[in-house]
Design a binder for these strands. Structure first.
Length: 462
RNA sequence: GGCCCCGUCGUCUAGCGGUCAGGAUCCCAGGUUUUCAUCCUGGUUACAGGAGUUCGAUUCUCCUCGGGGUCACCA
């Protein structure tokens, strides 16, 4: 069984980069009928893990990504980690190191001065004398000091590290007894049954350390996939400073979950030339072997395109529900269909769409001066008066086509081009030169409001 | 600085020894539309550089350059 996991450290919210690795992990688990687990890496007790977990779960929920089973909190697993620390100590695979912080700093400084790599010198590795007074020892693992550690990575291939280059006896438990990251990650992944670790490639250089832990404990090493970073415009790792990295901010901006997920799945991963993926297709097609090796630059142009694509292709019923989050209650609006049909091809975001709806429903406060100047030339006044009279006289006006017929009548009668009625009417109804089809607009606001807006405009330009 | 990763249009990418180097987005032009948007059609733009290997390299090897990541009693 394929078991994947997403293991964020609780920095507050779910960001784009994290979401992408979570998505990859989720898809791979679902595709294989496996499990997708969530673990909160909150060994840093100063932070509020509960809130962070809730923010992440909330974002997952919005996106429709559900994790399996209970959430694992590292902060609640000290007892478990203690067992493995003791085991390593008992087996002589780890030891207490009584070096003080000051001594360590001094050592590092000296090494740096000599242009050597800063590393622990192993002075307590074989120590069995009397420990110095007043030192709370850290616990270090006996790491191999020579030879190679090979990470068999599904994205990067086999990455070879020389032990002497990168390893030393690193700390697995602090002076206060709390375990450190590289130690608990290995234990948790093993205990949770994780078979494939899909994570950012900033973790690649951590991996040899984790492999040391796996091997010391006799655990089998999972399959790794280190996915390249997402960079900002400057080519640097994406961070909170780069604008909207909070996933929920995309909801506020009016992006649909579908668009965001589709955008992210294609960032660093591809399936031939395919650009549009439904959730089902993602689960069907996703395979980490097609993850790109190089970092990608984050750019929202395609996201916008995808968003408008999905808005266009979302059924009205569903669209009306989505729009509720933007303060638009359309579910029982009698002209909902016409309204949504008229606007879904025009909006890039749901937020924008809500705004466009209001621009139709609510009469313009004032008419744009330039538009008035341009549109109300020649016999515009007569045209509008004629049209208003026809609207007044008609009994049944419901569909856009009903209004369209009236416009056609005026055009024929007065022997003018369509633009001669379209432009002034548009300005009268919407206050500006652009917007959706006028026949739809009129069908939406209805007969009385149409007449009222035309008359009001006529009065204003008198 | 040590170690590691990466390098195809501006951006996301396809390519896996022989292609007019393909698609998407963006941008531009034309068409459709009373307008704007959508939509349709067309167009501009890329193999970082240099050595090899080979009949032939974007593809394989090495070097250079460039970018990124990581080097904690943080995660």
């Amino acid at each position: 069984m394929v078991v994947t996991r997403f293991a964020p450290s609780p920095t507050g919210y779910l960001h784009i980069g994290g979401l992408r690795t979570a998505l990859f992990s989720y898809l791979w688990a679902r595709k294989n009928g496996g499990k997708f687990l969530l673990r909160i890496e909150d060994t840093d007790k100063a932070r509020n893990s509960q809130e962070a977990a809730e923010a992440i779960v909330k974002a997952f929920h919005w996106l429709g990504l559900e994790h399996d089973g209970e959430i694992t909190y590292q902060s609640q697993r000290d007892d478990i980690y203690a067992i493995y620390i003791k085991r390593l100590l008992d087996e002589g695979k780890a030891y207490r190191c009584y070096m003080s912080k000051e001594e360590l700093d001094a050592l590092r400084e000296e090494q740096t001065a000599n242009k050597e790599r800063a590393k622990y010198d192993g002075r307590y590795r074989e120590f069995n004398g009397t420990p110095p007074e007043g030192i709370e020892p850290v616990i270090r693992i006996k790491a191999p000091l020579s030879g190679e550690i090979v990470v068999h990575d599904g994205v990067k291939g086999d990455v070879v590290f020389k032990a002497e280059d990168i390893l030393d006896d690193f700390v697995i438990a602090r002076g206060d007894g709390s375990p450190t990251y590289n130690f608990v990650v290995a234990i948790d992944d093993h205990l949770m049954g994780v078979t494939e670790v899909i994570r950012g490639d900033d973790h690649l250089s951590n991996t040899p350390k984790q492999i040391v832990v796996y091997e010391a404990l006799g655990f089998s090493v999972p399959k790794f996939y280190h996915v390249p970073m997402i960079h900002n415009h400057e080519g640097k790792k994406l961070s909170k400073r780069d604008g909207a990295t909070d996933v929920m901010a995309y909801k506020e901006m009016g992006y649909t979950p579908q668009a965001l997920l589709n955008f992210l799945v294609r960032l660093g991963w591809s399936n031939g030339d395919q650009e549009i993926f439904s959730m089902e297709e993602m689960m069907e097609c996703f395979n980490p072997k097609n993850i790109n090796r190089s970092a990608s630059i984050y750019n929202t142009e395609k996201l916008e395109w995808l968003n408008s694509h999905y808005i266009k292709n979302t059924p009205n019923e569903e669209l009306a529900e989505l729009l509720e989050a933007y303060g638009l209650l359309l579910t029982s609006h009698d002209k909902k269909e016409i309204l949504l049909d008229a606007l879904k091809e025009r909006a890039k975001t749901l937020k924008e769409m809500a705004q466009l709806v209001n621009e139709i429903i609510i009469a313009p406060e004032s008419l744009d001066e330039k538009a008035v100047e341009k549109a109300f030339k020649g016999d515009a006044r007569e045209v509008l008066e004629n049209f208003a009279a026809k609207v007044s006289a008609a009994d049944e006006l419901h569909l856009p086509s009903d209004y369209h017929h009236l416009m056609e009548e005026v055009v024929k009668e007065m022997n003018i081009g369509f633009g001669k009625i379209g432009q002034p009417l548009r300005v009268a109804l919407l206050g500006k030169m652009s917007g959706p089809g006028l026949d739809s607009v009129m069908a939406i606001i209805g007969k009385d409001e149409t007449i009222a807006r035309v008359k009001s405009a006529l009065a204003q330009i008198a």
